[in-house]
């Protein structure tokens, strides 16, 4: 047991195990995750039948692309100290808008642009009402989840919009450029953009600062509002791009493309990737590897013939484990 002082803070005299966990996880977390993924792949290739078969790792990469994009996006909101529970429905609305427009004869690239923009607008509303309306982000985005789901249902009349064969979207899902699947290229591109935004722009610096200490950031002249709104817009834009990838993969637009389990998956990927749920800490590389770890687990669940219905429970457990590790690691000071 750890002892506590009168302010409820864990004291330094906590036991050695906690200290060891903290030390082990505090250094270069992203590289540690890469090592973890490598170990998972090695263990799986010996223990899981067909895991090491030709094409399976390529499959995992391709299947991870949407999750990489969405998790990288939600990282911005987590960095700001919030949470985005609307992603599952952003998938649905993006998918319905995209398919509806394509079926209506709109040029595919324009349709993609419009669908991603619609997603971005949802993020803008999330951000504005969270910061300026002072609505806690989990309520705002949970409300938005139901609103977007309803709008997607109304737009699609509750039906699945099947895309005609032979569109550019089909190429997007199945095509390769220089031997690499297009979706993987999109994911890598999104991750690079996110890395640049976070590490090479004023916005990125301000976002980290706001996440670590909003009050100090405000006092030092950082425009906290626009930074938070920007984080929510990025989260939804990236989710919109992920929904385009998913729509292309299933070749149809459906309001139920995402759902609550998508929320779990995306947030778990970001959190397993070392993004702090207390705000201000997180790396793009970590989140990308986190997404790969999640999809590897999913792949193993399928190959081992374990009930896929357990997937959501596994995601929930991973969030709690990451949360506990994080709490021990940083020993959050209690206000």
């Amino acid at each position: 047991m750890t002892t506590t002082d009168t302010t409820g803070r864990m004291t330094r005299s906590g036991n050695a195990v906690l200290g060891a966990v903290r030390r082990a996880t505090s250094q270069v977390p992203a590289l540690g995750l890469v090592a973890l993924l490598a170990i998972m792949w090695m263990v799986a290739s010996f223990t899981v039948p067909n895991f090491a078969s030709a094409g399976n790792v390529g499959n995992i990469l391709q299947q991870s692309s949407d999750l990489v994009v969405a998790a990288t996006g939600v990282m911005f909101v987590l960095l700001a100290g919030g949470i985005d529970l609307s992603i599952g429905s952003v998938y649905g609305i993006g998918s319905v808008v995209l398919s509806g427009l394509v079926l209506g004869g709109v040029e595919v690239f324009l349709a993609i642009l419009i669908a991603v923009t619609v997603a971005g607008v949802a993020g803008f509303v999330n951000g504005v009402l969270t910061h300026y309306g002072r609505i806690p982000s989990f309520i705002m985005t949970l409300g938005m989840y139901y609103v977007l789901f309803a709008v997607a249902q109304i737009l699609s009349n509750g039906q699945t919009l099947n895309l005609p064969p032979g569109t550019v979207l089909q190429t997007l899902a199945r095509g390769n450029v220089a031997g690499l699947p297009i979706t993987v290229i999109v994911a890598v591109f999104a991750a690079v953009v996110a890395w640049l935004l976070l590490n090479r722009t004023v916005f990125g610096r301000r976002l980290v600062s706001v996440g670590l200490n909003p009050e100090a950031s405000r006092l030092s002249g950082i425009p906290v509002g626009p930074v938070i709104v920007g984080a929510f817009v990025l989260s939804s834009l990236f989710a919109g791009i992920a929904s385009v990838i998913l729509t292309a993969r299933v070749q149809s637009g459906t309001p139920a493309l995402g759902g609550l389990d998508s929320n779990f998956e995306v947030i778990t990927a970001a959190v397993v990737g070392g993004t702090s749920l207390f705000g201000g800490r997180g790396t793009v590389l970590g989140v990308v590897v986190g997404a790969l770890i999640i999809r590897t687990i999913g792949n193993c669940i399928t190959l081992l013939d374990i009930s896929p219905l357990l997937y959501q429970a596994v995601m929930g457990s991973l969030i709690l484990i990451a949360l506990i590790v994080e709490a021990i690691r940083t020993r959050q000071e209690v206000s």
Partner: peptide, 22 residues
Amino acid sequence: LRVPAFVATFGTLGIAAGLALF
């Protein structure tokens, strides 16, 4: 652990809803 309640209970939501499905 003094973790944010919305994250902790989100995790247990996943476990409970997932077990229900299972």
